[in-house]
Amino acid sequence: MEKDDKTAYLVLRGDRFEVPSGMTIRAALQRHAISPESVIATRQGQMLTNDERLAPGDEIKLVAVISGGAASRIFPS
């Protein structure tokens, strides 16, 4: 299904998560139970602070920093 143009995306180790644009990266991470401490957000190779607001169509690549493979999602609700 075609998504509306207000959606932004988080990409973590091949998994793609949809989030509404306008929210901060921190809020988007928390919405998907991804610990902000365990990732670094980047857009087109540039590092971003977690207070950055997502623009429509943004694709935010998350660099996992915690050791241990795909263990970056914590306590999924």
Partner: peptide, 8 residues
């Protein structure tokens, strides 16, 4: 992970 939950 547990410590990061607290840190968050």
């Amino acid at each position: 992970q547990t410590l990061n939950k607290m840190e968050d």
